[in-house]
Amino acid sequence: MEPTELERIARQIRLRDLQAVYEAGAGHIGGEMSVIDILTALYFRVLRVWPDQPKHPERDRFVLSKGHTACALYVTLAKRGFIPEEEISTFLQPHSRLNGHPNNNKVPGVETNTGPLGHGLPVAVGMAKAAKLSGAKYHTYVITGDGEMQEGSNWEAIMAAAQFGLDNLTLVIDHNRFQQGAALADTNDLAPLRPKLEAFGWEVTEINGNAMSEVVPALEHRSSRPHCIVAHTNKGHGISFMQDRVDWHHKVPSKEQYDLAVAELSEAI
């Protein structure tokens, strides 16, 4: 699938995500808007997956470590055919399997339970190591938030991935510059991320994570070392009044804001 087509799908996913959060009255819309281009590129171009066989042994593994943006993953999985598209309207409803954080026990296509930050990358290291031991050819991708990189468990995993020579592992850091309560720069500022990953022995690519023409080749890149993509993104990307505003981490739009956002996203489609 070509970048222009992927961009169109990403806009549709943004629109459906916005609707789902508005209807549910909860969600993490800012970080969902920042990561949706990467999710789209993964599921509609890069990952080898079979929606009718979510446990296919040869599937590429994808772990969404920033699990609070589960809704964006659900919408992407639905659009790709893992779950029914109409199920998105059950997001956060009682007895729905689409909970606030993705659960592998419940939702086909969700590889790993996440939610507590700092869980996805070390599990992905285990998956990539398992492939080395078994000879399996799948590639393992994981997306973390940039604020999430403050969790020490990530750096334990980064150390080990280099030590074990995991060339079958790609980490994407969704570098939208905001965490739950403040800007990254005003918290424990990890930027610039590139020299830190390089110092640990990783190959690092920096891209505009909201530009499909940069996202796709970075995800398809293969290295002799573990590969980190520092994806510079915008929190709330695609919706003007949300963009780069920390309060849109998990704010829910009013009716007026919702209509405005729908209009902006629809215009782009």
């Binding site: 590889e111 790993t112 700092g118 869980h119 070390p122 599990v123 992905a124 290291v125 285990g126 998956m127 990539a128 190591k129 398992a130 492939a131 031991l133 078994s134 399996a136 020490g152 468990s153 334990e156 995993a157 150390m159 080990a160 030590q163």
Partner: peptide, 24 residues
Amino acid sequence: RFYQMGMAEQLLMMSAAGMAREGF
């Protein structure tokens, strides 16, 4: 089949989880 994970107990548990997910 032996892995020295270093002094990193969180990684120890999580990479074990990853390997268990893959059938080990």
